[in-house]
């Protein structure tokens, strides 16, 4: 190569600023072909890839957001249910407490009524027995007292009205003496 160039150099060489015209033409044709290829194939292809990629990423983001919203929704729902259950439980507890209270009240009232009833019944029974006994005793006592008195006095007390007056008088005296103690005991 050096040997070939020496002859050229001896003449001072071509001016390097002058383009070699065929070379320029070949260069421009090559450039045009490459441009065409890049324009038709490379750039659209790459742009499509970029677009797809960004869409993919955006789609992923959208999906993630959706999932998050879903999770949020579920959480809300869950919380809501929890709160509901909690209030339900509180309500049930309150109800139960109120019911229990009521039952206790009822029981108490019932017991009270029962006891009142028993007491009343007892008192009534007692009063009945007492009046019966008093009546019995009064008749008995009168007869026996008359018997006793007739036996003691030896005379017959035929006069019915007189006899009754005597017995009654006696019994009134007896009641008057026992009245203070009888009123306190009842």
């Amino acid at each position: 190569m050096l040997n070939e160039n020496t002859t050229v150099l001896a003449q001072g060489g071509p001016n390097p600023l002058f383009p070699h015209i065929p070379e320029t033409i070949i260069g421009l044709i090559s450039f045009a072909i490459l441009y065409f290829f890049v324009h038709k194939y490379v750039v659209p292809r790459f742009e499509k890839i970029y677009q797809e990629r960004s869409q993919r990423i955006e789609g992923g983001i959208a999906r993630a957001e959706e999932a998050q919203a879903e999770a949020q929704r579920t959480l809300e729902q869950y919380k809501e249910q929890l709160a509901e259950a909690r209030s339900e439980a509180a309500r049930i507890r309150d109800d139960a407490r109120a019911e229990g209270q009521q039952i206790v009240e009822e029981m108490r009232a019932q017991a009270q009524a029962e006891s009142d009833r028993i007491v009343n019944q007892g008192q009534a029974q007692l009063a009945a027995q007492r009046s019966q006994i008093v009546a019995e005793l009064r008749a008995d006592l009168g007869r026996q007292a008359v018997d006793l008195a007739s036996r003691v006095v030896g005379e017959s007390l035929e006069d019915e009205t007189r006899r009754r007056g005597t017995v009654d008088r006696f019994l009134d005296e007896l009641e008057a003496t026992s009245a203070p103690s009888g009123s306190t005991s009842s």
Binding site: L2, N5, L9, G13, P14, N15, P22, E23, I26
Partner: peptide
């Protein structure tokens, strides 16, 4: 010694006017 100069960039055609840069 012939130093390389601008002549080193003037390539003779390989075949039929086709040069190395082409």
């Amino acid at each position: 010694f012939q130093p390389p100069g601008v002549g080193s960039f003037d390539f003779p055609p390989i075949v039929a006017g086709i040069t190395k840069p082409m």
